[in-house]
Simulated scan of single mutants.
Amino acid sequence: MAAPQIVEHTHFTLERNAFGKLILTTESGVRFEGVVPVRAFPIQAPEIGISLVNTDSEEVGWVDRLADVPEPAQSLIRQELAAREFMPVIAQIVSVSSFSTPCTWTVETDRGRTEFVLRGDEDIRRIGKDNALLIADTHGIQYLVRDQFALNTGSKKILDRFL
């Protein structure tokens, strides 16, 4: 079976079928049902470089900049990404049960207050050149700290003990 041709956003249309699946139709009329958008750089550049993959995980479309995609395709891609991605953003570290791991963290996120268990210091990773951090809990949920230096003083003191 030949590999599918990758098409740029100006050469395809996007729609949702009755079952809620995305359908990509190329300029030449080839249809791909069940297309899923995947961000190339989900944290550092979430609006740049979005791959559209078919049910066989083959790339069938590419979007350089999401803002350049005409409506309604842009909204469909945004809706699909929002439904698939779950990465709470930590606004404040309220408390930790211990400064040795494993320990339970209580945090305020953009989705409300929650608790999670940090297995080890290695589960806190710096991201890129920015001051961003990615913290993984024991269940594999990733929590994002957009800028560790923008947190309140108490949160920064707790974080310093683990970095």
Rank of each mutant, 00 (worst) to 15 (best):
L22G: 01
Q5Y: 12
D68Y: 14
P72C: 02
V36P: 02
T26I: 07
N17K: 14
I93W: 02
P4Y: 05
R31G: 06
D137I: 00
I48H: 09
D147E: 08
I77W: 00
I135W: 07
V53C: 12
T10P: 05
G34P: 07
V35A: 01
P102S: 05
I93Y: 03
D56T: 14
G49Y: 05
H9Y: 09
L76W: 00
G140F: 05
S75R: 01
A83H: 07
T10F: 08
V60A: 13
E27P: 01
F19C: 01
V107D: 11
R16Y: 01
P46G: 00
W62A: 07
A67S: 14
R125L: 12
E47C: 02
K156Q: 14
G34R: 05
L118I: 08
N152S: 10
I48E: 07
I158N: 08
S95V: 04
P70R: 11
L151W: 03
I158H: 09
I124M: 14
L118V: 08
T138K: 02
A3F: 07
V35D: 00
K157I: 10
F99A: 10
P37G: 05
F116V: 08
S97L: 10
A91W: 07
L66Q: 06
K156M: 13
T114L: 14
F12T: 01
V7W: 01
D147F: 03
F116T: 09
T13D: 06
G61E: 05
D123Y: 15
V69M: 04
I93Q: 02
V63T: 06
R161C: 09
V53F: 06
F86C: 10
I43N: 06
E58G: 11
K129F: 14
V96F: 06
S57M: 15
I90V: 12
V94A: 03
S57V: 14
I90K: 12
I124R: 11
D121M: 14
I124C: 15
V36T: 09
P37I: 02
I127D: 09
S100A: 11
G120W: 12
V145F: 05
H11P: 01
E27L: 06
D110K: 10
W105F: 15
Q5E: 15
H139Q: 03
I6N: 04
T153W: 12
T26N: 06
V30R: 15
A45C: 11
H9A: 00
G112Q: 12
P4Q: 14
G34M: 05
